[in-house]
Amino acid sequence: MTTAERYYVPHGSHWPIVGTFGMMTLVIGLANLFNGHDWGIYLAYVGVAAILFMLWGWFGDQIHESLKGLYSKQVDVSYRMGMTWFIFSEVMFFAAFFGALFYTREYSIPWLGGEGAGAWTNFILWNGYEATWPSNGPAGIGGDFETIPAWGVPFLNTLILLTSGLTITLAHWAVKKQKQLQQVVWLAATVALGAIFLYFQAHEYMEAYNELNLTLSSGIYGSTFFMLTGFHGLHVTLGTIMLIVITFRAAKGHFTPENHFAFEAVAWYWHFVDVVWLGLFIFVYVL
């Protein structure tokens, strides 16, 4: 039996404990920061650094093992399943925030406005409040604000992400056809599109804060808007970093038509980020 036909069980690893240390430092730092201790942020930085170190080392080990041919098909399948279910968990994370958006739009805002079961709520507590969307609630938390029109930059961003879905697929074909230069080019294009998307989003946020008075504390609209687009943006950022790594690995010729799970994992992740954006575009911006 050659090594690659056997299931590779690594013999101990100190990366998980490094990761745990990083996570703990990060959250302890953040919690202290939130509680008003400015030094917390430095602890959080240490945490992030430790996590990055862990990712570097852990993935490094795996790349090394993969290149040594230690991974059998079966190991590959384990990784695929792991990634699939991880993405599913991310879907559910976003579902919570989409759920919050639907709930407030369908129930709490109308009730506060006196519809359905809310007649007394409106009459006694929030007399004069009319249920509309966007809304920052009956108390107008955060003051008057304007929203970002869907068909401007957000639409452009939609096109950008869709295009990036295309470019990464082209890169995948290139992997399958063993065209290394094409791989790198298309991956680089995907990275660029991701970066442009992020640039536009950052720009949009600045505009929202500086000109539209649309902030995280603009009532429920601001809350759902920034939490949904913000977590999405975070995922795009992570995705872009992963893409950059993959691009370098492609340049080093790590991927063969048979063995390129890391590439696929990133591609799946990117598509997932893409699909979430479509949901956002429709439910946050358009409707």
Partner: peptide, 20 residues
């Protein structure tokens, strides 16, 4: 959401801001 309601001024669970 609890965390941001407490520390970042979101209104997920605050009726005054349209939450519940």
């Amino acid at each position: 959401m609890l965390l941001t309601d407490k520390f970042f001024g979101t209104s997920f669970f605050n009726a005054a801001g349209g939450g519940d």
